[in-house]
């Protein structure tokens, strides 16, 4: 019995099993949890983390790291709002935001891949530079949105489900596909597994890493736009600490910080576990201060479980 339990928990799909059990428990025990309204609210609350986690997964899988995501999200939100206010065209604003995100990501990638500066240091630097840019651009103030159509990005619904959730789902699908079914995805995992061997096998390691960071920038741009639309303004102080939530979600989802191991399903589960924990604690009126502790404990437990699992696999 215990052996079988161990097998399930430590197997490939262990995390999914735990997620399902946790979900069932929370549904049964927390009042008002399993309602349409709350479910949509829960998903809305994980949109930013979930979107950014898509590409953070690639970054971590290639043995890299990106701390600048929170700043890029805030900066892209500012750019989206200010550019659409200035030009009067929302489309131009969105494109400008994504372009800015992509540019920052590209710079990250070039510095890391070509100049061989440690990813942690590079993105620690760009994190501060970009946050600075966001603050300078509006002199530290929030910028309101002129056109009401901009709100509609976050408010509009399709088949009863808000647009941001659709965007999240589509990105999950796209990046899941990219990871498993494209040369780019497989090369990413190979680089994380052994960068030098990958290079000698003909993988263009530098280019792949630059692409990963550039994509990360694009995705942060999208997340920034949706966030700005939801909070109806460009906030230079938005998304502070986002990088840590995103990395936590990825690690919870079984992505290895040593590179070479990542699954989209794992990351989705990781994002949802974080969302459910927060949502359930809110419903139970647990004060925010305690929530930090709970989140930390969940992360530690997940990593411990992962450790047990890899040593169980290593015994083969």
């Amino acid at each position: 019995m215990t052996d079988q339990l161990k097998k399930i928990l430590l197997g490939e799909q262990g995390l999914v099993v735990i997620f399902i059990v946790a979900f069932a428990l929370v549904s049964a025990l927390v009042p008002n949890f399993l309602t349409d309204r709350n479910m949509l609210g829960l998903l809305q609350s994980v949109v930013t983390v979930g979107i950014v986690a898509c590409t953070m997964m690639f970054c971590l899988a290639a043995r890299d790291f990106d701390l600048s995501v929170g700043s890029i999200v805030a900066f892209a939100g500012m750019v989206a709002v200010m550019a659409s206010n200035y030009t009067g065209s929302i489309l131009l604003g969105l494109l400008a935001a994504i372009a800015c995100g992509a540019f920052v990501g590209f710079i990250n990638g070039v510095v890391i891949a070509k100049f061989r500066i440690n990813a942690l240091i590079t993105t620690l630097a760009t994190m501060q530079i970009v946050r600075g840019l966001a603050l300078i651009s509006s002199d530290g103030r929030a910028v309101g949105i002129n056109s009401p159509d901009f709100y509609q990005l976050a408010l509009s619904k399709l088949l009863g489900i808000p647009t941001p959730i659709w965007v999240l789902a589509i990105l999950f699908a796209i990046f899941g596909f990219v990871l498993n079914r494209t040369v780019f995805g497989k090369n990413t995992l190979a680089i994380g597994g052994n960068p030098e061997a990958s290079r000698l096998a003909g993988v263009n390691v530098d280019r792949t890493r630059i692409w990963i960071f550039a994509l990360q920038g694009v995705v942060c741009g999208i997340a920034g736009i949706l966030l700005a639309s939801r909070i109806t303004s460009g906030q230079p102080n938005a998304a502070v600490g986002l990088e840590l939530s995103v990395i936590s979600a990825c690690v919870l989802g079984g992505v290895s910080l040593a590179g070479g191991r990542a699954t989209m399903s794992g990351v989705i589960v990781g994002v949802l576990i974080m969302g459910i924990a927060e949502n359930a604690m809110n419903l139970l009126n647990i004060p925010a201060f305690y929530q930090y502790i709970v989140r930390g404990v969940i992360l530690l437990l997940a990593v411990l479980l992962d450790n047990l699992r890899s040593s169980a696999l290593g015994r083969r």
């Binding site: 079914r181 494209t182 040369v183 780019f184 497989k186 090369n187 995992l189 190979a190 994380g192 597994g193 052994n194 030098e196 061997a197 990958s198 000698l200 096998a201 003909g202 993988v203 290895s256 070479g260 191991r261």
Partner: peptide
Amino acid sequence: HDGIIQGRSIEENINISSRRHHTRFGVLNR
């Protein structure tokens, strides 16, 4: 150090270099 990609399957270790022969528009033919 220079040959095997640790943590990845035999299949991926064989195909890593020749993937471009198995793709159409960057999508792999499993």
